[in-house]
């Protein structure tokens, strides 16, 4: 069983999705995270172990390697794809409550901004780190974040923006959120955002890259 846990982790780390996927070339024809997760569940491996001992561990390694420039965006995305293939098999266990996640993360691109690629990638990494991610999409007003916080009062909020002209809307959203949820934790990120700006708008965290954000999330989840 522990072999399967390790094999799934290796597949995620290497971006090996299934037997049909040609990447990585040195694992061609071998089963990927998709088949191995299915097999593990059939053999009685606990879904919680698959999540926490395989997927989270593998994605953590991937994020670490990315933040150290040892791998690049493509490898990270291929890992995220392999992770998502595994996650598909775990979904029923999330729904039944058999597998608990670390917390809920509500993410959206701020109003006025339509850019979502960076946000989407970030969402994938955070999900891979064991969080439930609620993606509100793009051009999101403060009310929508607050509505979602009403359903998940302990959730952490993530705001994304790609333009200097729209990142100012992060401050507006944070103020609105704090009026109703003074203790709500909010993280910000995006190409033009930096630590100084994050402090200026009273964000709790600036995520320079997904891994930094995950590190902070894991700390506050404890």
């Amino acid at each position: 069983m522990s072999n399967l846990i390790e094999e799934i982790a290796l597949c995620v780390e290497s971006g090996k999705v299934n037997a049909a996927s040609p990447y990585p070339p040195n694992m061609k024809g071998q089963p990927g995270s998709d088949e191995l997760t299915k097999q593990a569940l059939e053999e009685g491996v606990s879904p919680d172990d698959i999540l926490n001992k395989s997927l989270v561990v593998a994605m953590n390694k991937v994020g670490q390697q990315y933040s150290e420039n040892k791998i690049f965006v493509p490898q990270m995305l291929l890992a995220a794809k392999a992770m998502a293939a595994s996650m598909q098999h775990l979904k029923p266990f999330f729904q039944s409550g058999e597998v608990k996640r670390k917390g809920t993360f509500i993410m959206g691109t701020v109003f006025g901004d339509l850019h979502d690629i960076g946000k989407n990638l970030c969402c994938m990494m955070i999900e891979g780190a064991g969080w439930e991610v609620i993606d509100l999409g793009v051009d999101v007003q403060a009310e929508k974040f607050i509505n979602e916080l009403n359903k998940h009062p302990n959730a952490v909020v993530g705001l994304s923006a790609l333009l200097t002209t729209t990142m100012v809307n992060m401050g507006v959203i944070i103020s609105s959120i704090r009026e109703k949820y003074p203790k709500a934790k909010v993280a910000v990120g995006g190409a033009p955002v930096n630590l100084d700006f994050a402090k200026q708008i009273n964000a709790d965290q600036y995520g320079k890259n997904p891994q930094e954000l995950i590190g902070w999330l894991d700390k506050i989840a404890v």
Binding site: V73, P74, L77, L78, A80, K81, A84, A85, I117, N120, L121, M124
Partner: peptide, 18 residues
């Protein structure tokens, strides 16, 4: 096309298309 790829769990393809 890019959005479809992202929705179909093809994040790298979606990102490259973008």
């Amino acid at each position: 096309w890019s959005r479809k790829m992202l929705a179909d769990n093809e994040p790298l393809k979606g990102f490259i298309a973008d």
